[in-house]
Design a protein around this nucleic acid. Structure first.
Length: 501
DNA sequence: CGTCTCTATCCTTGAAGAACGTTCATGCAGCCCGAGT
């Protein structure tokens, strides 16, 4: 198929040139290749499937991890003139869903969650459609969330088969070679065309500091944010701490501070995010719930109050700073005890060997698989722990719906082995993170080395091991600009962004 | 000495009620039946 890509780009999107990587990915996709695209945030990953979808016709299916991401995308596309776009999700009422389902073939872009994709009715519907392209947005979720947390991410390969193997495009902003391989393995597409672009941020200075206690960390944050006033994110691994520190900061800083985590009401979450976007809040104390799909360009400071469980998470989180290309800073604060928290999180995520054995012998006796809640209650398992076991049993064909078999010892051993591997993997990831915080050589080099061969020279002071001194830093954002604007301007800003629900 | 933890989606298999499109499978015990000794 010969297409004038530039004409199409101009016609449908109004741009006259591509950003780095877009054209290469699109050409591969149009040639029907399976593509793994790792493009840095802000390069417009969505264009990589939106343009092909226009050119190829038929339907492009986009797997997306968050309803809010899907809704944003659909809203944005519709406002720029793309009509045949939809997002199937649980927020739709029955009627609307039925309506969309009946004319699903008429949509050129369909956004959907991996969970909903497992719906049998939907699968049957999709089987008889002309699916031209299967896109996985935020594809690192396959590797990062698929194994325990959202195991439906590991079932995508089966669905792709069911759809008679359309070309697959997996997109992400951060993936180590290891994660890239895992994505390809889990999709059972070992020969994807790799389009990998550097992800080291040349405008972020890195600093790590050891402290003696959480209180000392808090004092340090107050010190830094008193001197530097600019949009700031502070990452926590605990909801409680996020709230606690946000109250403390609210009392003692000039800046407007709020917290954000997954335990909050949807409406509160949206409110906080919108306020932060509109510069009505300066500092957000958040857990990892905040960030994916966040498109604020002028975040200047990202602070880590706790240790992320792996370097990938850390890189993703600091990558939210300085998307406008201007100078930004990452500061990680740790104490000698801090590895306990990620350690406990790993434990709560994976079952133990004895849990496995108890489940196996239970299935030996029982006829039916109980409801998820019942089995979790019975064996005192977290959702992730049961998800892990359940998926492994399904993968081996031991469970299908309500039915199950007695698990032969060979398969028991196989599952035990994969559990063991997973423990080792997670443990190693944490160790890698720990090693990095005690690193004495250049932090930039050691941080990005696992991701890419060549690390580019930063445009800003590099890191605290090189030439960066946090105490000499002085961000002083000018908030006047916003405060001056009239209520009409502010209102139109709010309307143009739109709100979910 | 005791502390004590993150991330999201979906309610899918219905069965007597209007609007194209589609249609399928699991494990196992126990029973019946017919063939071979």
């Amino acid at each position: 198929m010969r297409v004038d890509l530039y004409a199409a780009l101009k016609k449908y999107f109004g741009f006259s040139s591509f950003r780095e990587g877009q054209e290469e990915v699109i050409r591969d996709v149009l040639q029907g290749k399976d593509v793994l695209g790792i493009l840095p945030t802000g390069t417009g990953k969505s264009l990589c499937y939106q343009l092909p979808s226009k050119v190829m016709g038929g339907t492009t299916l986009v797997i997306s991890p968050l309803i809010s991401l899907m809704v944003d995308q659909v809203k944005q596309l519709k406002s720029s003139g793309f009509q045949s776009v939809t997002a199937l999700n649980s927020f739709m009422d029955k009627e609307e869903k039925q309506k969309v389902m009946n004319r699903l073939h008429a949509f050129s872009l369909v956004y959907i969650s991996p969970e909903m994709l497992q719906n049998q009715r939907l699968q049957q519907r999709l089987q008889h459609m002309n699916i031209k392209l299967f896109v996985i947005d935020e594809a690192h979720c396959i590797s990062q969330w698929g194994h325990e947390f959202r195991t439906d991410y590991l079932k995508l390969d089966q669905t792709i088969d069911l759809l008679k193997n359309p070309p697959v495009l997996a997109l992400s902003a951060t993936a180590t070679p290891e994660v890239q391989q895992d994505i390809m393995n889990k999709l059972r597409r070992p020969h994807m065309k790799k389009r990998i672009y550097p992800m080291d941020k040349q405008n972020i200075s890195l600093a790590v500091e050891e402290h003696l206690s959480p209180e000392e960390k808090t004092e340090r944050i107050i010190e830094v944010l008193t001197k530097n006033q600019a949009p700031t994110m502070i990452y926590f691994s605990s909801r409680q701490w996020a709230e606690k520190v946000s109250f403390e900061l609210r009392d003692r800083l000039k800046q407007r501070v709020a917290f954000y985590h997954g335990g909050m009401e949807q409406t509160d979450r949206m409110l906080v995010q919108q306020q932060f976007m509109n510069n009505q809040l300066d500092v957000i104390c958040c857990t990892s719930a905040f960030g994916m799909g966040l498109d604020k360009k002028d975040i200047r400071i990202v602070i880590h109050f706790h240790l992320p469980p792996q370097l990938e998470s850390f890189i993703q989180e600091i990558g939210r700073a300085g998307r406008d290309g201007e100078d930004a800073v990452s500061l990680l604060l740790f104490t000698r005890q801090d590895h306990h928290l990620p350690q406990r999180l790993i434990q709560s995520e994976l079952p133990e060997k004895k849990d496995l054995n108890r489940i196996f012998s239970f299935l030996q006796k029982e006829r039916e698989v109980p409801e998820d809640e019942d089995i979790m209650e019975r064996f005192q398992l977290s959702e992730s722990q049961w998800n892990f076991v359940k998926f492994k049993l399904e993968e081996e064909g031991m469970i299908r719906g309500r039915w199950h078999q007695k698990v032969p010892s060979a398969i028991q051993q196989k599952i035990e082995q994969s559990l063991e591997n997973r423990w080792v993997y997670k443990q190693n990831k944490l160790t890698e993170m720990m090693k990095w915080i005690y690193e004495t050589d250049c932090r930039r080099t050691s941080l990005y080395k696992p991701f890419q061969e060549v690390i580019r020279k930063p445009h800003v002071p590099c890191c605290d091991a090189c030439d960066f001194k946090l105490d000499e830093l002085s961000f002083c954002e000018d908030y006047k600009e916003y405060k001056k604007s009239s209520w009409e301007e502010r209102l139109s800003l709010i309307f143009s962004q739109g709100v979910l629900l």
